[in-house]
Amino acid sequence: MVSPAVRAAIDEEIAKMPEKRGALLAALRLVQEERGHLCAETIQEVAEIFELHPAEVMEVVRFYNHFHERPQGRHQVNVCTSLSCALRGGRGLLRQIQAHLGIRAGQTTEDGRISLGHEECLGACGNAPMLRIDDAYHLDLDWLRTQQLLDGLE
């Protein structure tokens, strides 16, 4: 069940928008922050709040990269692999991270610590290569710094 606190936050988002559905993305984000991912039951609950068919909510969930239907690691590490970063070693960095963690992009470490991914340009091309850990950007990386960042994750 969506907790009362999250439900209240969703209602607040709904109140801001001219139409209820306008708050759907915000609601999915809030629910995912609480639950870690959006399983079928959760999607159905959100669909009920928004008076939508769950297929319509599923469609939205699967369109956007940030929504996950499966459990994720405690931290999301996403490496930018778009051109400006690639030119400055972004893809090499991803390869090194994969080797270091023993997983491929799209996977989660066995201890559930890190889900690794690669993303398209994150709007920090002037500080390439870069990656995103959860909500924070880490810029102008080299392997040493990256390794420290990864190893520092709980």
Partner: peptide
């Protein structure tokens, strides 16, 4: 001014994709 956050889809930068996303739909 109402701040609305996207959820990871480049096409939401196209203005009508953005409008769809704003309405809680696929962009």
């Amino acid at each position: 001014v109402v701040l609305v956050r996207g959820a990871g889809a480049y096409i939401c930068g196209e203005e009508t994709g953005l409008l769809e996303s704003l309405e809680g739909k696929k962009g």
